[in-house]
Design a protein around this nucleic acid. Structure first.
Length: 152
DNA sequence: GCCAACGTTGGC
DNA sequence: GCCAACGTTGGC
C-alpha cells in the first residue's frame, strides 16, 4: 500500500470531472515521462491512495482524494496519430506508455500549494522540492496522514 | 508572459 | 557517450 500525488490540469480533468458520477473510474492516460511511467508500471497497486492535485491553474493544490483501481495497461493514446499524446515510436508489440484507472474518493477543500509549503510535516514532499515537475510523485504514509487530517 | 529547472534529441 | 540546443512544465 503506497500513496501518490497525481497532477492534473483542471481544464483537462478536474476533481469535479472525476467525481461526476459516483463509482465511475477515470483512465489516467497521457503520461509521457519515464520516471512517472515507471511509478505507474512498477509500483502502483490497486488500493493505493492518491492526492488529486490541480496544476497549471489559478489555485494550484490538492483538490481531492482518489484511489488506484486498476493495474497498469497500455495507454491507447500512444497509438492514435490524431492524439496529442501520439508516440510514433510506440507499437502494440512494444508499447512504451501505460495508463491506470483511478476512482475519486471525495472532493475536498483546496489545500493550496502555499498552505502546503507552510506545513513543516510536509516540507519533504517530493512535489514541494525545488524544480520538481513530475506529474506523479510518491507520498509517504506520514504525509498522507497529515494531509487527510487537514482535509477532514 | 516570464523564466527556472529539468528532460529529450541528435550531431559528433 | 558527451553535450548543446531545444522543448516542456508549472508557479508566479
Amino acid at each position: 500500500m503506497q500513496y501518490w500525488l497525481m497532477k492534473s490540469e483542471p481544464d483537462e480533468v478536474s476533481i469535479d470531472d472525476v467525481m461526476a458520477s459516483p463509482g465511475q473510474t477515470t483512465a489516467w492516460f497521457g503520461v509521457r515521462n519515464y520516471q512517472a511511467r515507471n511509478f505507474m508500471r512498477d509500483q502502483m497497486q490497486v488500493g493505493d491512495g492518491v492526492l488529486f492535485y490541480h496544476s497549471s491553474c489559478p489555485e494550484p493544490g490538492v483538490a481531492g482524494l482518489a484511489e488506484i483501481v486498476s493495474t497498469p495497461y497500455p495507454d491507447e493514446s500512444q497509438f492514435d496519430s490524431e492524439s496529442k499524446y501520439y508516440d510514433p515510436k510506440a507499437t502494440r508489440e512494444t508499447p512504451r506508455w501505460v495508463s491506470i484507472d483511478v476512482k475519486g474518493t471525495r472532493k475536498t477543500r483546496l489545500l493550496s500549494l502555499a498552505e502546503m509549503r507552510a506545513i513543516p510535516a510536509l516540507e519533504d514532499m517530493v512535489v514541494l522540492q525545488k524544480g520538481s515537475r513530475l506529474s506523479i510523485t510518491p507520498v509517504t504514509a506520514a504525509q498522507w496522514k497529515a494531509i487527510v487530517k487537514l482535509l477532514t
